Amino acid sequence: MRSDTERNRKNLIQAAARLFEVAEGPISMTEIAHEAGVSVATAYRQFASVEEVLNTYRQDVGQLLLEFSERQQGSGVQRLESISRYWIRLVRERGAAMVPMRNRRGYLARLWEGADYLLVQANAVRPALRDAMQEQSLPDIGDKAVFLWNILFDPREIFDLLDTVGLSEQQVGSQLMAVLLGGLRGFAEGQGANAEPASHSAGREK
């Protein structure tokens, strides 16, 4: 990719993030282009839609989580807690731009169809989730574990706990981790003998 093309692409992603951080309504590609200092035609040469710009931003944030995850050591629970706490920090620093645009389709439907911005995040938490469940003598429930993690660690809910309730990042991490571990057990025990085979999601892991 040419240097000016790469620069325009990065500028558009950063411009979209700035706009979405303060947005109270829809953002147009024209607004993103203006904020980035490029023409609308240039913006559309890089991205087909506003959603694509935002999903690329989400994927970049998810990549940071994946790289952090791959450096972690220790037990599954220890790694899962470290990864989850790092995600809370990323949300506080970068997550406001990920809140305004919500997709009507379910998380697992989009994940299993291969949405890159969801895959990178899922790959960051899958190994630790699987190992944490094994340590608790729980059956592998596949991507239902990632589904539960995604519900609890949704940026909008994290901001609600931080800003509305007034919890610290440490408190949010501790309380959500406690709920997550209990929820994983509930999912596994509720599923009983019909637990999803590990192979269902194994092909999606990096």
Rank of each mutant, 00 (worst) to 15 (best):
L54M: 05
G106N: 10
S201E: 04
T30H: 00
N11A: 11
G166P: 13
I141T: 15
S199Y: 00
L12S: 04
P139I: 00
I27K: 03
W149I: 09
V91M: 11
L180R: 00
R7T: 12
P139T: 03
M1K: 11
Q14I: 11
A17L: 06
I141A: 13
L180G: 00
T5S: 01
S3G: 02
A96M: 03
R104Y: 09
A48F: 00
E21R: 11
F153C: 14
Q134V: 05
H34G: 05
I13T: 13
A16V: 09
R18C: 06
S168M: 02
S201R: 10
L184P: 05
D160G: 06
G25K: 09
L167H: 09
A198T: 12
Q136D: 04
R89A: 09
D4P: 00
E135K: 01
R45K: 09
G62R: 12
V40Y: 01
D140Y: 09
Y86H: 14
A132L: 10
I27V: 15
V179K: 03
R7W: 00
S174C: 05
G192S: 11
F20D: 06
L12P: 03
K206E: 04
Q14D: 09
D4F: 00
L12K: 04
L148P: 06
L138C: 13
P155S: 11
Q191V: 10
Q175L: 13
H200A: 08
R92W: 05
D160A: 08
D116V: 07
N194V: 08
L138Y: 07
L66K: 12
P155Q: 08
S199K: 04
K206C: 00
M177F: 06
G190Y: 02
R2C: 00
E6P: 01
E35N: 01
E189R: 15
L162C: 02
Q171N: 05
S75T: 15
L161N: 00
L138F: 14
P100R: 06
R105I: 12
E169F: 00
